[in-house]
């Protein structure tokens, strides 16, 4: 398989993988897993809910694919115990370029509540109304957390981070509208049914 094709394949995968690769290539210096997790959380925003575990998992796969190398951290006094740092390999830049160039596709929608509604029966309606309330509170919590991550425009990084935040905003706005609509339809259905039973 030609090297380019292989890098394109390696570049695809989770957005977290691409983000870690981009950070290592762009920072140009070895970074610890902890530092990478902090940076990736800052750049993707709190709505991504990046966990340390997922960062280490993605780093391991990048190492297996030969796009990232890992080594024990060397301090002024020698090798630091237990600490590992990660660096981009020679193939990382081409893989990053391939990720940036690759066509973007819509992620599948896998909101658990939507699945619950899709498979629900009429007598589940009161449970679903309460679940909608909880989902709405979760949306507000995400809005609050993404508001904390605001950065000024003026630089490319500022523009990129604001675009990421606006994407979250738009998605939350759509979710809130959907919740309001779902609530209204379910309540109207219940009111109609109770009126029919009363006749």
């Amino acid at each position: 398989m030609p090297q380019g094709t292989s890098d394109r394949r390696h570049a695809s995968g989770s957005p977290l993988r691409g983000a870690l690769l981009a950070l290592l290539v762009n920072e140009g210096e070895p970074l610890s897993g902890y530092r990478l997790a902090t940076l990736v959380e800052r750049r993707l925003g709190p709505a991504w809910r990046v966990t340390r575990q997922s960062v280490y998992g993605a780093l391991e796969r990048l190492v297996e694919d030969g796009l990232v190398s890992s080594a024990a951290k060397v301090t002024f006094h020698g090798v630091a115990e237990g600490q590992r740092v990660y660096s981009a390999t020679d193939r990382a830049s081409a893989a990053l370029e391939a990720w940036m160039e690759s066509p973007a596709t819509r992620e599948p929608m896998r909101v658990e509540l939507q699945a619950r509604i899709a498979l629900s029966r009429a007598h589940d309606a009161p449970h679903l109304l309460r679940a909608l309330d909880a989902y709405e509170r979760d949306c507000f919590e995400m809005l609050r957390r993404s508001s904390e991550a605001e950065v000024p425009m003026g630089s490319w990084v500022g523009l990129a981070m604001n675009l990421t935040r606006v994407a979250v905003d738009e998605s939350l706005q759509a979710d809130l509208r959907w919740i309001a609509l779902a609530r209204r339809w379910i309540e109207e259905f219940l009111a109609e049914r109770s009126a029919q039973q009363g006749r």
């Binding site: 449970h127 309460r130 679940a131 309330d133 909880a134 709405e136 509170r137 507000f140 919590e141 809005l143 609050r144 809130l176 919740i179 309001a180 609530r183 209204r184 309540e187």
Partner: peptide, 20 residues
């Protein structure tokens, strides 16, 4: 404090524990 208004009711976002 954030809350939503719909169906005539206000729903506060800081109320916890109603998820079944």
């Amino acid at each position: 404090r954030l809350m939503s208004l719909g169906s005539g009711k206000l729903r506060p976002s800081d109320e916890r524990g109603t998820l079944v």
